[in-house]
Design a protein around this nucleic acid. Structure first.
Length: 454
RNA sequence: GGCCACGUGGCGGAGUGGUUACGCAGCGGAUUGCAAAUCCGCGUACGGGGGUUCGAUUCCCUCCGUGGCCUCCA
C-alpha cells in the first residue's frame, strides 16, 4: 500500500515519495544538552527511530540519511557552564559541559534500542554555515543588522505562519514578544546576537557574537541534507516558533518554496496524569528509569500510543509492557527471524501506527519467526530469551534451596503425598517463588520450573 | 484573549457512517491430584445536548472537561 505520513504542513495524511528517488533525507531536532535528558526527550528519538528503521526497510539501509542534531549553545547551557566550569574560557566551558551531557544522552538513547543516526551534528561546529545563511538573508532583503544583532524581518516573508497556521495579526494580538528598540517589527526574531566577553562567542561580520536558536537547524540541515529534503521531525511544541522560523530562514535564503516536504510532530507526554515539571517533582530522567526498567520496556511503553497522541507515562503502563515483552521474548527471542508480518508493516506504513502494529504482533504468537522479524523491525529483541528473563530484579531467593525443595516436592507427588507436596509449594510461595509444573516432552516425566513472583 | 489537539468498555489503546480491534485485568471452560502456566470462550464501550442521515461512536453545531501552543521547552 505504500508509506503514508501525516504532514503538519497540510494537516493531512499523504502518500510519501522522496524528492530524490535514490535517497531519503530526514532531519530531527534533538535536545538541548545541559543536563540529563528526561523521558519526554526520549519520545521523538524513539518515534523517529522507528520511522528510520521503516524507511531503511522500504528504501534500503544505505539510502536513508538521518540527521539528528544537538544544540550545544544556548543560554541555559551558558549559565550551567559558568556555574560548573569557573575560570574556563566560555567556548571551551560549554564544549566541556556539552561533551559530558551529550555522552550521557547518547548512552541513554542507545539503551532505549535506537540506532545511531547517520549524522549527529553540533550547532557549534556549524557557525560558518550559519553566518553564510545569514549573509544570504541580508543580501536578499530578509534580514538586517542592528546594534550588533542580526534579525530576520518577518514581514519580508509572505509565507510566514504557514506551518503553525497563524496570521501575523493573530500573533501580534496575543504577542508577548520582546519589543527591542532595534527591531523593525515586533515579530522579527534574532539570527545573531552579540556576546559579552564572558559569554561564548564567535567572530562574525557583525562582531563577536552567537547564533539565535533557530538558525542552527537551518544551517545543519543545509550542510548535511541540502537546501530541501524530505522529512523534518520533532516535538509538537517546536511547531511554533522554532520550525516556523526555520522554514522562514531556509526558504528565504535558498529561494525555495519548501524546506522539508513533510513535517512530523510527536505529541506531548504527561507523567501519571500530570504535566511533567521540576516544580511538581515528577520530572523523570531517562537514566532514572533505566535504573529500574529495561530499555525495551520504556521503548515498548512509548510505542503503545500513537506518536501524535498525548501519552500518559505511568508505572502501571511500564509493568504491563514488561509482561507483554516477557511473553514476546519467550516466544520469539531465540527464533530465526523470517517473514515479516504483513499486518505489522501495513500498520507502520499507515503513519507509523505502532499501536496497531503491536496488536498485529499479538496475532503472530503462533509464528515465532515472523514475530521475531517484526519485533526486530521495531527495534526489539536486542538479547536472548534467557538474558531477558534474567533482567527481573533478583529477589533474595536461594536457587539451590529452591531446587532442593522442588526435588522434594516431586518426590512427594510421585508418592501421591499431596499434602506434603502442597506444603512445599506454599513454602516456596511464601519465599516469592512461583512454580510451573509440566511434563518432559521426551520422557513424559513430570518436571517443575519456577520463577520469581512479581 | 487568540490558535490547536483530545475525551472510546474496570484499565491501556486502535479504528470506522451500518459487521469482533487488540492487550491487561475479570469471569466461564479445557487441562491439573489441587494449583500455576497454557489453550478455548465471554463483555458489547464510544463526554452531554442538538442536527444531517434509512442509520453516527464515526459528519456538522453547541456545551462541558482535559491538555498544548502563543515566552525557553520533545
Amino acid at each position: 500500500m505504500g508509506l503514508k505520513l501525516y504532514n503538519t504542513l497540510t494537516k493531512a495524511k499523504e502518500d510519501f515519495a522522496p524528492l530524490d528517488p535514490a535517497r531519503v533525507r530526514m532531519y530531527v531536532c534533538g535536545p538541548t544538552v545541559y543536563d540529563y535528558a528526561h523521558i519526554g526527550n526520549a519520545r521523538p528519538v524513539i518515534v523517529f527511530d522507528v520511522l528510520y528503521r521503516l524507511l531503511r526497510h522500504l528504501y534500503g539501509a544505505d539510502r536513508v540519511t538521518y540527521v539528528r542534531n544537538i544544540t550545544d549553545v544556548d543560554d541555559k547551557i551558558n549559565a550551567r557552564a559558568v556555574r560548573d566550569y569557573p575560570g574556563v574560557p566560555p567556548v571551551e566551558a560549554i564544549r566541556e559541559l556539552t561533551e559530558s551531557t551529550y555522552a550521557q544522552f547518547q548512552k541513554d538513547v542507545a539503551d532505549l534500542g535506537n540506532l545511531a543516526p547517520t549524522v549527529t551534528p553540533r550547532a557549534t561546529e556549524h557557525i560558518a554555515e550559519m553566518i553564510a545563511i545569514i549573509e544570504r538573508l541580508i543580501a536578499g532583503g530578509f534580514a538586517y543588522a542592528a546594534e550588533g544583532h542580526v534579525l530576520f524581518h518577518v514581514p519580508a516573508d509572505a509565507d510566514y505562519g504557514k506551518l503553525a497556521r497563524r496570521s501575523l495579526d493573530d500573533m501580534i494580538a496575543g504577542a508577548r514578544v520582546d519589543v527591542a528598540p532595534y527591531k523593525r517589527d515586533a515579530m522579527d526574531f534574532v539570527l545573531w546576537k552579540p556576546s559579552t566577553p564572558d559569554e561564548p562567542g564567535w567572530e562574525s561580520p557583525w562582531g563577536r557574537g552567537r547564533p539565535g536558536w533557530h538558525i542552527e537547524c537551518s544551517a545543519m540541515a543545509w550542510k548535511h541534507l541540502g537546501e530541501t529534503f524530505d522529512i523534518h521531525g520533532g516535538g509538537i511544541d517546536l511547531v511554533f516558533p522554532h520550525h516556523e522560523n526555520e522554514i522562514a530562514q531556509s526558504c528565504s535564503a535558498f529561494h525555495t518554496p519548501i524546506m522539508a516536504k513533510v513535517w512530523m510532530h510527536n505529541g506531548f507526554l504527561q507523567v501519571e496524569g500530570e504535566k511533567m515539571s521540576k516544580s511538581l517533582g515528577n520530572f523523570v530522567t531517562i537514566r532514572e528509569l533505566l535504573n529500574d526498567w529495561p530499555g525495551e520496556v520504556l521503548r515498548f511503553t512509548m510505542l503503545r500510543t500513537h506518536y501524535r497522541q498525548p501519552i500518559d507515562w505511568t508505572v502501571r503502563g511500564m509493568e504491563e509492557s514488561w509482561r507483554t515483552l516477557d511473553d514476546f521474548f519467550a516466544i520469539a527471542a531465540d527464533a530465526e527471524p523470517s517473514g515479516l508480518g504483513a499486518g505489522v508493516l501495513e500498520a507502520l506504513e499507515d503513519d507509523l501506527n505502532t499501536p496497531r502494529a503491536i496488536a498485529e504482533l499479538h496475532g503472530l504468537r503462533q509464528d515465532p519467526a515472523a514475530l521475531s522479524a517484526s519485533l526486530q523491525l521495531l527495534g526489539f529483541l536486542g538479547e536472548s530469551a534467557q538474558s531477558w528473563a534474567s533482567r527481573r530484579p533478583a529477589a533474595d531467593v536461594d536457587a539451590a534451596a529452591v531446587d532442593a525443595l522442588i526435588t522434594a516436592r516431586l518426590a512427594a507427588r510421585k508418592a501421591k503425598d499431596f499434602a506434603a507436596s502442597d506444603r512445599i509449594r506454599d513454602e516456596l510461595a511464601a519465599m516469592g517463588v512461583l512454580l510451573k509444573d509440566g511434563k518432559d516432552p521426551a520422557t513424559g516425566e513430570p518436571i517443575t520450573t519456577w520463577e520469581v513472583k512479581r
